[in-house]
């Protein structure tokens, strides 16, 4: 759904950073708590990059598991399929997300010229 506009943002960043050099692979780090459907993002990238300088480049996604830290007992818990914001150790609701909200471009690999 919003993957198209996200790809537009990715294209802007990549175009600026690549500065005219041909790009082969774009490494994107996606946290579990981002609502990005990987296959949709990859498909939208082919649509958005088509007939641009980035045509033929591909997205490589790195998924980051969501993790919370308890402010009561300092325990770390991984979130399961549902992001239930309760400490896995002491059941406290006073938790903070320490991983899983990432959404960034980490690196570009340039194509062989």
């Amino acid at each position: 759904m919003h993957e198209l506009s996200i790809c537009g943002s990715i294209a802007e960043i990549v175009t600026r950073r690549a500065n005219g050099r041909p790009v082969d692979t774009i490494h994107v780090r996606v946290g579990q708590l981002r609502q990005v459907v990987p296959d949709t993002l990859v498909y939208c990238w082919t649509v958005v990059s088509a007939d641009t300088a980035l045509d033929g480049s591909r997205l490589e996604l790195e998924n980051i598991k969501a993790r919370i830290k308890c402010r009561t007992c300092d325990g770390l818990s991984d979130l399961g399929d549902y992001p239930i914001m309760l400490c896995g150790t002491c059941d406290s609701a006073d938790v903070e997300v320490v991983a899983g909200e990432e959404f960034l471009i980490t690196a570009l690999e340039l194509a062989e010229v």
Partner: peptide, 20 residues
């Protein structure tokens, strides 16, 4: 933006929602 591993790879570390 400096090169990390020769000229093939560009470290970016830029948030996709930064502009927004």
């Amino acid at each position: 933006s400096a090169y990390e591993t020769g000229r093939e790879r560009i470290e970016v570390l830029e948030r996709i929602f930064d502009e927004n």
